[in-house]
């Protein structure tokens, strides 16, 4: 019997980590909110959450000594989940308030929603929107297993990631004429621009799927 896998929820400032913790618990994981680099690298799985500004977040990670810890964790092959700003932080760079370097675990920039022609669009996008399959592959071997094409998820953001590798794009979303990447699956990395922990039952299902990956990964490492 393997004990419940330990998940480190990286705490580098503010945001509702409580609901991420509850979603982990509802999925059979043992979460711990931490800003300790050692606890981060030692966990069975890692969640990089985040709301707020990209530059501030990178600064906090740096100050807490978490950048190398997250890089090391990503290279270990253990499951890493990025949520919202946490997904954006995985990218190479962001144009939010000037240009900032990201973790560079996934190659590609983070850009802002722009007005298309004369149409003024509401930014941030706040609310429910749909996720769609891409040409490059299905969802069966990902955290989106069992989720229907076009399912609604809860989004709050002004910026989005543009992965250089199209194979890394797991799902896409349309917002006011922009078709953008709303989910990434690449090796041991999963990331979502929306908040699965705020996306009702289908969102909790994503946590359950990811928890299964975490449990299987821990078994294979024993």
């Amino acid at each position: 019997m393997i004990e419940n896998p330990k998940v480190a929820i990286v705490d580098f400032g503010l945001g509702n980590l409580f609901s991420i913790k509850l979603a982990c618990e509802a999925s059979g994981l043992t979460p711990k909110i931490t800003s300790d680099p050692y606890e981060t690298t030692g966990a069975d799985a890692l969640i990089l959450p985040g709301v707020g500004a990209f530059g501030d977040a990178m600064e906090s990670l740096e100050r807490l000594g978490l950048i190398s810890a997250i890089m090391e964790f990503a290279a270990s092959g253990k499951p890493l989940l990025g949520i919202c700003l946490g997904m954006q932080l995985l990218m190479s760079e962001s144009e939010e308030f000037g240009s900032h370097k990201g973790l560079g675990i996934i190659s590609g920039p983070v850009v802002r929603f722009r007005d298309i022609g004369n149409k003024k669009i509401k930014v941030p996008q706040v609310g429910w929107n749909r996720i769609f399959k891409t040409d490059s592959g299905g969802w069966d071997s990902s955290s989106l297993k069992g989720i229907g094409d076009g399912t609604y998820m809860y989004f709050v953001h002004s910026y989005y990631a543009v992965p250089s590798l199209s194979e890394a794009v797991l799902c896409e979303t349309d917002y006011e004429g922009h078709r953008y990447c709303s989910g990434i699956s690449w090796r041991n990395i999963s990331a979502f621009q929306f908040h699965p922990e705020k996306s009702s039952k289908m969102g909790v299902m994503i946590y359950r799927n990811w928890a299964e990956t975490v449990i299987n990964n821990k078994r294979s490492m024993v």
Binding site: L14, N16, F18, S19, L22, A23, A26, Y154, H195, E197, K198, S199, S200, K201, G203, V204
Partner: peptide
């Protein structure tokens, strides 16, 4: 597991922190 907003009598940054910590988004 959906967004939860809370209002009423929130006057300080500390008040905000407290309700967010209780589970509000």
């Amino acid at each position: 597991f959906i967004p939860l907003s809370v209002g009423g009598g929130i006057r300080t940054l500390e008040d905000i922190k407290e309700v967010l910590r209780a589970g509000a988004d």
